[in-house]
């Protein structure tokens, strides 16, 4: 191991595992009936790193998430998570390997309570069968208590917004921002190593998005997740990213820290069209 610097665990993690990325895509392509949504994408994410994926609409950002979580099938290339391929797994297996995601258009289990939402997403971490539930065994009760506890812990990460009486409120009664928060909490409850956040601050006001930006940082620092964020808000991207990847038409056109990427002529052209860079 290298010398531990006081700059924090996160940096250490980033350095030590620079050789061993937690997630790696190799020439990943996704075809939609001839349309290449992703075209030979190479991407790697190291443990404890926050990577932002940006790009104009239709660049293939959400498709990248869908391919990683096996919601759409990759037509070529490979996706490695902790060195093992994810190709061919069902989405639920991917989640139990340790990748959780949120959705661009918030998709909660709207009629389940806030607490149930975070309890149900621990499904792949729990083992009790029908018989346990029917016989009401000690193991069953312990497990229920444990997932309730962990659910509450995850929810309390967001301050008092999702705790107290809100535990038993159905999810659809939450405000928009709280739904987004609950979705992140639900992803956290699956006990992942990598979280994929799809436009986490979309539709939020500046105060809320600033707060959430801070939370994304804390997710890494306190919980040790590696994070990939799709985001359109450049403020947020600048704040949170260790590294920024720019996609356009399914191809990676730039990669680097925010300052480099934001001045890259190719990126400016992708966003603003031909001639804008000159």
């Amino acid at each position: 191991m290298s010398v531990t610097t006081p700059s924090g665990a996160a940096q250490e993690a980033a350095e030590s595992s620079a050789t061993q990325p937690i997630l790696e895509t190799r020439v990943l392509s996704v075809d939609f009936g001839g349309l290449k949504a992703l075209d030979g994408l190479d991407l790697s994410v190291c443990p404890g790193e926050i990577v932002s994926v940006i790009g104009p609409n239709g660049a293939g950002k959400t498709t990248l998430f869908n391919a990683i979580t096996a919601t759409v099938a990759a037509s070529e290339g490979d996706i490695l998570f902790e060195g093992k391929s994810l190709i061919g797994l069902d989405p639920n297996r991917v989640t139990s390997r340790g990748i959780a995601r949120t959705f661009q258009n918030v998709r909660l289990f709207a009629n389940m309570t806030v607490l149930e939402n975070v309890m149900v997403s621990q499904h792949c971490r729990t083992r009790q069968s029908v018989f346990g539930a029917l016989l009401y065994t000690k193991a069953f009760r312990d497990e229920e208590a444990e997932i309730t506890e962990r659910g509450k812990e995850v929810l309390s990460f967001f301050g008092h917004r999702l705790t107290g009486y809100r535990f038993d409120q159905p999810a659809y009664t939450l405000s928009y921002a709280n739904r987004r928060r609950l979705e992140i909490a639900r992803a956290m409850a699956t006990q992942p190593k990598l979280i994929l956040l799809d436009e986490p601050v979309a539709g939020m006001n500046p105060t809320e998005s600033a707060e959430l930006t801070g939370l994304i940082g804390r997710l890494r620092d306190e919980w040790g997740f590696a994070i990939v964020v799709i985001e359109h808000d450049m403020e947020v991207v600048r704040e949170v990213s260790d590294r920024v990847v720019v996609l356009d038409h399914g191809v990676k056109i730039a990669e680097g820290d925010y300052a480099d990427v934001s001045t890259d002529p190719q990126v400016i052209e992708a966003y603003l069209g031909h001639g804008a860079a000159s």
């Binding site: 979580t69 919601t71 069902d90 989405p91 639920n92 989640t95 139990s96 959780a100 995601r101 959705f103 998709r107 909660l108 289990f109 709207a110 009629n111 389940m112 149930e116 309890m119 149900v120 997403s121 621990q122 499904h123 792949c124 971490r125 729990t126 009790q128 069968s129 029908v130 346990g132 539930a133 069953f140 497990e143 229920e144 997932i147 639900r186 699956t190």
Partner: peptide, 24 residues
Amino acid sequence: RSRIGRAWMAVREDETVAEAMGIN
């Protein structure tokens, strides 16, 4: 009121998301 029942409800609510949240 068990893990199974909650999973059933999640499937009823939104199957795709239930799958993405680790439910087989």
